[in-house]
Simulated assay, not measured.
Amino acid sequence: MAETDFPAEVAEVRDTLRRITDVLDVEALAAEVSDLEQQAADPNLWDDQENAQRVNSQLSHKQAQLKRVQSLAQRIDDAEVMAEMAAEESDEAVLTETANELASIRKALESLEIVTLMSGEYDEHDAVVTIRSGAGGVDAADFAEMLLRMYTRWAGVREWDVKVLDTSYAEEAGIKSATFEVNAPYAFGTLSVEAGTHRLVRISPFDNQGRRQTGFAAVEVIPLLEGTDSIEIDENDLKIDVFRSSGPGGQSVNTTDSAVRITHEPTGIVVSMQNEKSQIQNRAAAMRVLEARLLLLKKEQEAAEKKELAGDIKASWGDQIRSYVLHPYQMVKDLRTGYEVGNADKVLDGDLDGFIEAGIRWRAQGSDD
């Protein structure tokens, strides 16, 4: 193989990791893990189940993040030893193994670096994602269900916890809407770049003439609020309806009125929850999502006012963000970043990392302009 300056490459990846850990503040992260471990060891922790779940979830997330950094540091040390052995023994097999390992480390560092680009107020939070079918009839409803599968598969590969909170099924096929929670560090910062309108072009399996059809689906991403975040909601502004949960085709899956729909009348925001076992649980879940949506709306209004005062009329996020073309060729293209992939099936199976990382880098560049 061609001669490689391994000492220089090792020094480069070590310096990259140092810059990343400086931004992540690994010492503070380790201190957080230690504090959460003490809380988790408290025998009285489960007296408050909601707080216990929060502590254990945060501990798991923070431990995984710290382990990721520590593992990369160890891999760099090991690669340095391998490089020294290869140089001393002129062993081609070890040289190749060292080169491959350094390439793998660089890729892992690029992925870790993405976290340093997420500095928004709520980027570290868990996320609540809602997918709604748009124009396109049954094809749009089917596309909305395809997106739900895409995101849950993507999260599953990452071993991120996904909890479906509500699903409204369409009459013929697919879904009218679905809301799910993603519990992982930086889930909101990561998934927030997916918010917007997605477009599907394909030969419709529902058209008996085999014509090409276009369907649209909207993706909304909001941060899941913690106890320290709050927004006051006047109970008098709420309209609360209860109904029976239902599955595909309208079949009853619950014999009691446990599903809850909350309408915030001043804004018209509607939140429905039906996947918990009791009305009380569904109401609590719906209120959490409503609070998050109202807080996000407040932030958007404040940002719009600041832009107006500053005279900034430059467009930022467009409504349609991505096209998924299945016919007459296969291609998925992000209209903001220009990132594209020729294998649409692979993307719809959950291979989203390239699009998400490109989106986060694009967003970071825009905020620096």
Results as ranks from 00 to 15, higher is better:
368 D>N: 14
119 S>T: 13
172 E>R: 15
67 K>S: 14
27 E>R: 12
57 S>Q: 11
181 E>L: 15
263 T>N: 13
150 M>I: 03
275 N>M: 07
102 L>V: 00
2 A>N: 14
281 Q>D: 05
96 T>L: 14
52 A>E: 00
237 D>I: 09
25 D>P: 02
36 L>Q: 03
21 T>K: 14
115 V>A: 12
307 K>L: 15
311 G>A: 09
194 E>P: 00
149 R>V: 14
221 V>M: 02
159 E>I: 10
265 E>W: 06
54 R>M: 14
353 D>P: 00
301 Q>I: 12
297 L>Y: 09
217 A>Y: 07
256 T>V: 11
10 V>T: 05
59 L>C: 02
183 N>M: 14
124 E>Y: 13
240 I>P: 08
88 E>Q: 15
84 E>I: 13
175 I>T: 03
254 N>P: 02
289 V>F: 04
129 V>S: 01
260 V>Q: 01
200 L>S: 06
361 R>T: 03
96 T>D: 15
157 V>L: 12
268 G>N: 09
193 V>I: 12
351 D>H: 15
24 L>K: 06
141 A>Q: 11
93 A>L: 11
312 D>S: 08
126 D>G: 07
97 E>S: 07
285 A>Q: 02
9 E>Q: 15
28 A>M: 03
11 A>T: 10
220 E>N: 13
162 V>E: 06
358 A>R: 00
215 G>F: 02
82 M>I: 13
232 E>A: 11
324 Y>G: 03
126 D>V: 00
19 R>L: 11
324 Y>N: 03
320 Q>G: 02
67 K>A: 15
319 D>S: 15
298 K>S: 14
190 T>A: 09
20 I>D: 08
255 T>V: 13
279 Q>F: 04
78 D>R: 15
237 D>C: 09
253 V>P: 00
197 T>I: 13
115 V>K: 14
301 Q>Y: 09
250 G>H: 03
91 D>Y: 01
79 A>Q: 04
189 G>C: 10
2 A>P: 12
3 E>A: 13
34 S>Y: 09
49 Q>A: 15
118 M>G: 01
10 V>E: 02
79 A>R: 07
22 D>A: 13
285 A>N: 00
346 K>A: 11
312 D>G: 07
30 A>F: 06
299 K>G: 02
83 A>W: 02
98 T>R: 03
186 Y>W: 11
324 Y>I: 06
33 V>L: 03
255 T>Q: 13
295 L>H: 05
186 Y>L: 11
51 N>K: 15
365 Q>G: 13
200 L>E: 02
20 I>Y: 06
199 R>P: 01
108 A>K: 11
201 V>S: 06
35 D>G: 07
268 G>K: 11
197 T>P: 04
52 A>V: 02
325 V>H: 08
94 V>Y: 06
5 D>S: 07
223 P>H: 04
206 F>I: 10
188 F>S: 04
93 A>K: 12
43 P>F: 05
308 E>N: 08
242 V>K: 12
363 R>A: 08
152 T>Q: 08
93 A>W: 07
169 Y>A: 05
312 D>V: 05
211 R>L: 07
66 L>W: 01
1 M>V: 11
119 S>N: 14
38 Q>P: 03
